[in-house]
Design a protein around this nucleic acid. Structure first.
Lengths: 135, 135
DNA sequence: GTGTTTGCAAATAGTTTGCAAGAAC
DNA sequence: GTTCTTGCAAACTATTTGCAAACAC
């Protein structure tokens, strides 16, 4: 049994053709790739996969609920999806090119925890987007 | 001439009834209020103002372009608008109630600048959302 | 008076849903 | 064989746009 099938099954999802293919697309993404449902759909079409757009949305939602992927929303844009690697990270986004870079900074995370505490919030999560232009 | 009219004119916008009314609604918002176009529209209807939803969207977009307001996007939701006060701030959002609290932390801002620099990005802006539950 | 703005209805973009046919186990 | 999943088309939500009438200056 393939590793992908195993991952799906472990997430409590029946192993179907669309799910495996969509999971493979996500596995093939690099740090700079943050694909929308539409883009994933187009990648599948390019690979001659006969999977409907609605299914892509449904599967991505199931993946998110199962904790396999994380849905991000940069600025105005539509949602983009990336595999949940287990370790948290935030994003640097180039305002000019849209290029994305991931980072994870302990000092930053620590300060965010403190800010939450100072304001009487029990921390549950964070979204940090730094905008800039690649030099 | 009212202060509101002045603000609009200074922003390069002709003073019209819908613009003044929408601006007044925004002025009446507290730190915890982050209203969507739809909500602003409903507030206007409650005040017996006969202003169309499309106009609310158009005016808010003009306000944003003029630097009068800032458009935010929390999580999945629609866009919300707040007056640009000049000083930057970030947001704490209660995952349970949706309640919003603003903050501005120098240490945090400093660290974000450093992270941008470390990654070869010329800093242009930031969006920080801390999620938590109000204790 | 002239150019800008508005209201309405229709269009659009992204996403979700109902349902009958098809796949997984 | 039964239950879950998929594809398609239609529905939906948030937002934008075309256009003729109304307004600001």
């Amino acid at each position: 049994m393939s590793a992908e099938s195993n991952d799906l099954r472990q997430a409590g999802l029946k192993v179907t053709h669309p799910r495996v293919k969509i999971y493979q697309v996500l596995l093939s993404a690099t740090e700079a790739d943050h694909w929308s449902a539409e883009e994933i759909y187009r990648l599948l079409v390019e690979r001659s996969e006969d999977i409907g757009l609605a299914t892509v949305y449904r599967v991505l939602t199931q993946f998110e609920e199962a904790g396999l992927v994380i849905r991000q929303r940069f600025e105005n844009e539509h949602a983009v999806y990336e595999l949940a690697t287990g370790d948290h990270h935030d994003h640097l986004v180039c305002s000019r090119t849209g290029q994305v870079r991931e980072f994870n900074d302990d000092k930053l995370n620590q300060r965010l925890l403190e800010i939450a505490a100072e304001n009487g919030f029990e921390y549950t999560g964070q979204t940090v987007h730094i905008f800039g232009e690649v030099r």
